[in-house]
Computed example of a mutant assay.
Amino acid sequence: MPKDLTPRYTVPGIEREAAGRLIGLLRLRLHALNDLHLTLKHIHWNVVGPHFIAVHEMVDPQVDRVRDMADDVAERIAALGGVAQGTPGALVAERTWDDYSIGRADALAHLGALDVVYTGVIEGVRAAVKEAGEIDPATEDLLIEQLRDLEQFQWFVRAHLESAGGSLATDGARTEEQGAARGGDL
């Protein structure tokens, strides 16, 4: 990522240096959302097993909403005077996480891995909300709205991984492989 993201101009009421901080944190959110929408489509295409149709149909509305979120973040970057880097090369070069590692797999294995993915994305959004809140309520509000939707999507995923007694199969899973193994054990 370029070291200085300070724009030449920004929205009224925000200093250029503060806008640069916002642009930096939004760039990573844009990358995370673009990566998430591609990961969701990957799952959509590679899910198999008796729960295939439920997962196949559940993830498409999530893909659509995540793509809309990415668009909103990119437009906020532009409004702040920055450049929304939405290319695959920028995503790969600047991301702080590894590529989704599960290929063709049972629906519950994918959902176990996706639970771990959502946890990482949500933790990143929460950190961005905190930082944005110190600078700009409009950017903070955008991120909070997205956080609510992402948490709901994770709840949908976790509903498949939760027992009637309330225990989560992926509890304690830190990697996609661990999540997939625990989800696949159901």
Score class of each variant (00 low, 15 high):
Glu177Cys: 01
Pro50Val: 12
Ala84Asp: 11
Glu162Pro: 00
Tyr100Cys: 00
Val116Leu: 02
Gly184Met: 03
Ala93Gly: 12
Pro12Ser: 10
Glu162Phe: 02
Thr96Pro: 00
Glu134Arg: 14
Ala79Leu: 10
Leu5Tyr: 11
Trp97His: 15
Ala18His: 12
Leu80Cys: 02
Arg65Gln: 14
Arg148Asn: 11
Gly20Ile: 08
Phe156Cys: 01
Arg148Ile: 14
Gly112Asp: 07
Phe153Ala: 05
Val92Phe: 13
Glu17Gln: 12
Glu140His: 11
Leu142His: 07
Gly103His: 04
Leu28Thr: 14
Ile122Phe: 03
Ala93Ile: 05
Glu94Val: 01
Asn46Asp: 08
Glu145Gln: 15
Thr170Val: 15
Thr119His: 08
Val83His: 10
Gly20Trp: 09
Val66Glu: 03
Pro88Cys: 04
Phe153Val: 02
Leu150Gly: 02
Gln154Thr: 07
Leu91Val: 15
Gly184Phe: 03
Ala93Val: 09
Val63Glu: 10
Arg126Val: 14
Ile43Thr: 08
Trp45Phe: 12
Asp149Met: 11
His44Gly: 02
Lys3Ala: 13
Arg16Tyr: 09
Arg174Cys: 00
Gly112Leu: 07
Ile102Glu: 03
Val116Ser: 04
Phe156Ser: 00
Ile122Arg: 01
Pro137Trp: 13
Val83Leu: 11
Ala173Lys: 04
Leu26Phe: 13
Ser101Pro: 02
Lys41Pro: 00
Ser167Val: 12
Ala113Trp: 07
Gly179Phe: 07
Leu111Asn: 05
Thr175Lys: 11
Gly81Thr: 09
Gly172Phe: 04
Ala84Lys: 12
Ala84Leu: 10
Thr87Leu: 10
Arg182Leu: 14
Leu80Met: 03
Ile14Tyr: 05
Glu123Ser: 12
Ala70Tyr: 12
Glu57Val: 03
Ile53Trp: 11
Pro7Ala: 00
Gly124Leu: 05
Ala18Asn: 12
His42Asn: 08
Asp98Met: 11
Phe52Val: 03
Gly103Met: 01
Asp60Pro: 03
Asp4Leu: 07
Met1Leu: 09
Gln85Tyr: 14
Ala109Glu: 14
Glu177Tyr: 07
Leu30Ala: 10
Leu147Met: 11
Gln146Asp: 04
Gly166Gln: 08
Arg29Lys: 12
Asp185Cys: 01
Arg8Cys: 00
Glu176Leu: 02
Ile23His: 04
Arg29Ser: 06
